[in-house]
């Protein structure tokens, strides 16, 4: 059983790598045969050369660190706030009904629409990035936690009440196990959104980080360098997703969707 799974996992990985290699080959070929201009779309080999060159500069590593820090700090604030507020609002039916309309009003506001406001408040600083990141990702967590609390089995809840579980006991043993899968989904979504907003803020406002390096390379006409930074942000995106998935499996090893003995739910 386990062996078969490993074979399948390795097969998936191998196919994934082959797919990537073909994609890279196409990217290399298109500018070389002149389908796209190599001036604006350099072949992938030129981008990799530019990336290697960038990796030798201190500014690259400082920017990488600043981007990851903004992302991590923003995400942590969003997860803690979203979970806390979600559990609290979700625990009181009246409160949930009272706040639902406000949440539905605020949630669809795209974080980027707040850019003029944060520029006015904090200028081209990391604080601007944090405001945008937290605003965008807190909803992902909050909404999922609210759904999770809603999803608690009434029978389980009533059973807990008959066994004289206190409010804390109910939260710990009934609400939390039900909410956790939702929360993990929320964190995975929030992690991706937080990264998008981190880069956007650096790119548009000029807050320090990888996004600013993209903008600097662009405004200097250093095309290959610009793509090199774009590539790095893409790689970070892949890494963030991988980490989020591993975390999800670790935290929810007991859950049917993750347990290997159950019918394996395939996630896209």
């Amino acid at each position: 059983m386990r062996g078969a799974m490993f074979v399948q996992a390795y097969g998936d990985a191998a196919r994934g790598l082959i797919g990537l290699a073909v994609f890279a080959a196409v990217l290399e070929l298109l500018p070389r045969i002149g389908v796209v201009s190599h001036v604006y779309f350099p072949p992938i080999s030129a981008i990799v050369v530019a990336l290697v060159h960038e990796a030798g500069r201190a500014a690259f590593w400082v920017s990488l660190f600043l981007t990851l820090r903004s992302w991590a700090v923003g995400l942590a604030i969003a997860v803690i706030a979203g979970t806390g507020v979600g559990l609290f609002i979700g625990s009181f039916e009246t409160l949930r009904r009272l706040t639902a309309s406000t949440i539905e009003l605020l949630r669809p506001i795209p974080s980027v629409a707040l850019i003029p406001l944060v520029v006015l408040l904090y200028g081209s600083t990391i604080r601007s990035t944090l405001v945008l990141v937290v605003y965008a990702s807190v909803w992902q967590v909050l909404i999922q936690v609210l759904y999770g609390v809603q999803d608690v089995d009434p029978v389980a809840r009533q059973t807990a009440v008959s066994f004289r579980f206190g409010r804390w006991g109910q939260l710990r043993h009934v609400v939390w196990p039900t909410t956790l899968p939702y929360l993990m989904t929320g964190i995975r979504l929030a992690a991706a959104v937080a990264l998008i907003l981190t880069i956007t803020s650096e790119l548009i406002i000029g807050a320090p980080g990888l996004g600013k390096q993209i903008a600097l390379a662009q405004s200097g006409g250093a095309v290959a360098t610009m793509y090199a930074y774009v590539l790095v942000t893409g790689l970070i995106g892949v890494a963030v997703n991988l980490v989020a998935r591993v975390l999800e499996r670790r935290v929810m090893h007991w859950h049917p969707s993750v347990r290997p003995s159950m019918h394996r739910a395939r996630t896209p």
Binding site: P116, V119, G123, S124, I204, G206, A215
Partner: peptide, 19 residues
């Protein structure tokens, strides 16, 4: 020296006193 991504980011920061 604060590098901004264009005048649109500079003017509000000068008005608000950050620059």
């Amino acid at each position: 020296l604060q590098l901004a991504q264009g005048g649109a980011a500079i003017v509000p920061s000068v008005v608000s006193g950050q620059y």
